[in-house]
Design a binder for these strands. Structure first.
Length: 417
RNA sequence: GCGGUUAUAGCUCAGUCGGUUAGAGCGCCAGAUUGUGAUUCUGGAGGUCACGGGUUCAAUUCCCGUUAGCCGCCCCA
């Protein structure tokens, strides 16, 4: 094999397309019901946009950016997330000028230069939405509700909404120091690299997989105790709104997002998989990001579900997605019928149905084999007998039942399915 | 980015203690079946044994490197 596709970027082949379309259609239908409008930002942006939004110390910026210099000498990056692009577009085109919270959704490829593995890709796909301009806890709850309903609509029964409140900057500072103090003895035994990481962002210690550390943190400081009054009130109100909406959730103090821009609400939906739970989407409130990118202070909240993760979760739970069937396969039983089959194909398509026919002069048996493989519901057969009688033989490929209908009624037979 | 592991037909995998033409099952093509997709039988096509280098009389096999997949870590969707 001469060429291989780029590392960590999968080809989505025809047999996987029905699942992808089902997921994308489910999302589109859902967000449309909630009144969100679609935006399609470019796939690359100025490198600095992401440094400004995600934070210089975040892993995404410090080691996972797919960046390059273009022919004009500009430092660009393939987008590692879409929130920054959406906020940039919102500001650049003054989408907030019309007033009211602005609800936007998107869908597309995302790029992160990490080491690929199962469920982790360098090019992957996200759908997502952002509510810009509402400080209300109801906005946080709405975003979580849409995210949760997305997974239930896909047929996932073991998707769990996990919510946390990480407060504002000063609360996190206080909490971080308290955590570092609490685990100081444990940390002294770790590698230099681990220590540096812990000091850079102590919050990350919370979702560590280390059993000793988790045990130690069980009776450690709690973020809830460090929150300011406004954060605490906001967080409680968010949970009330969620409960009112009938969305099941769990408060999980271990939910810590990797992006620096979150304020107060952070959440994810996780699938109970084999072994460690699988993170299906991440989101939260980011009240300081818009002003950070040069706009008027604008409170906002959003979420971004990963599509490859959704597919993985569906596979784990055995969720089936129906394949759209081809309507008919047209079979020429004799050489003399090929021209008529061509005409019939035109009529079938003109009536809005999908059909296939043999191009290569294959035998009757081979044509039936292809008809079977194509997934077509019906075979429309024409040979010398049918030509003489002005009929078409209609065969149900699933049951094997067949009968003769006048040529003029053949296309009508497809409508009954 | 770090550690481990794997790579033989379209797919799942045997195999070669280094030695003539590298195998199986499934799939594919054709025939048995001159107007019918299951099954059965018969025949056939399909491989630079991931790529590059080294050792050797000889490498798909041993060694090194590269690439890609998988597992763990980091991190996340």
């Amino acid at each position: 094999m001469k060429f291989q596709g780029p590392r960590g970027a999968d080809d989505v082949l025809p047999n996987a397309i029905p699942v992808w379309r089902h997921i994308e259609d489910t999302w589109r239908r859902l967000v449309t019901q909630y009144g969100y409008l679609e935006v399609r930002p470019p796939m690359f942006e100025s490198y600095d946009l992401f440094v400004r939004s995600s934070g210089e110390t975040s892993d995404i910026v410090s080691k996972e950016m797919y960046d390059f210099t273009d022919k004009g000498g500009r430092h660009m990056a393939l987008r590692p997330e879409l929130t920054a692009s959406v906020v940039r577009a919102y500001l650049e085109h003054s989408l907030g000028a019309a007033g009211g919270p602005v609800r936007l959704w998107y869908c597309g490829p995302i790029f992160r230069y990490g080491r690929p593995g199962k469920g982790r890709y360098r090019q992957f796909h996200q759908v997502g939405l952002e509510v810009l301009g509402s400080p209300s806890p109801a906005a946080d709850a709405e975003v979580m509700e849409v995210a949760y309903r997305f997974y239930t609509a896909l047929g996932l029964r073991r998707a769990k909404l996990l919510v946390n409140n990480i407060g504002r900057f000063d609360a996190r500072e206080r909490f971080g120091e308290a955590v570092l103090a609490h685990v100081a003895a444990w940390l002294a035994d770790q590698t230099e690299e681990d220590r540096a990481r812990a000091h850079k962002n102590p919050m990350r210690l919370l979702d560590s997989k280390d059993a000793d550390l988790q045990a130690l943190l069980k009776d450690g400081p709690r973020i809830a105790d460090c929150l300011g009054d406004e954060s605490r009130a906001h967080g409680e109100a968010v949970l009330e709104r969620l409960a009112e909406a009938g969305v099941p959730f769990e408060v999980d103090p271990g939910i810590v997002r990797g992006l620096d821009y979150y304020t107060d609400t952070v959440f994810e939906v996780a699938a109970e998989g084999l072994g460690t739970s699988l993170s299906l989407c991440g989101g939260g409130r980011y009240d300081t990001l818009v002003s950070e990118l040069g706009g008027q202070p604008t409170p906002a909240v959003g979420v971004a579900p990963g599509l490859e993760r959704a597919i993985l979760a569906m596979e784990l739970e055995g969720v089936e997605v129906p394949n759209p069937a081809l309507d008919a396969y047209l079979v020429a039983a004799t050489e003399g019928a090929r021209a008529t089959i061509g005409e019939l194909a035109g009529e079938v398509r003109a009536a809005g149905f999908a059909c296939l026919r043999d191009l290569d002069g294959k035998s009757l048996k081979a044509q039936f084999k292809q008809a079977d493989r194509s997934g077509a519901r019906l075979a429309l057969i024409v040979g010398d007998d049918e030509l003489a009688a002005g009929t078409v033989t209609v065969r149900d490929l699933a049951t094997g039942e067949q009968g003769s209908v006048p040529r003029s009624e053949a296309v009508a037979r497809l409508k009954g399915l």
